[in-house]
């Protein structure tokens, strides 16, 4: 698996991002089991929107 595959759905559903669901449950449902995969999604912050104006 590649964690990037689950990013858009995780972002849309997790209450820590744009959704309203418990991130733990979302990750379980997505089948992202290993904590080293989970932390990648939980701790990620999209920065493109912040950098874009300074291009």
């Amino acid at each position: 698996m590649v964690v990037g595959e689950y990013w858009e759905e995780f972002k849309a559903r997790s209450e820590t991002k744009e959704g309203d669901e418990d991130p733990e449950k979302v990750l379980d449902e997505l089948g992202v089991e290993r904590q080293c995969c989970r932390r990648m999604l939980v701790s990620h912050k999209d920065l493109v929107d912040i950098v874009a104006p300074y291009q």
């Binding site: 698996m1 590649v2 990037g4 595959e5 689950y6 990013w7 858009e8 759905e9 999209d46 493109v48 929107d49 874009a52």
Partner: peptide, 12 residues
Amino acid sequence: PADDNIPIIDLK
């Protein structure tokens, strides 16, 4: 591609 939803870059 084995997975179709891996983001590569967000384009403005």
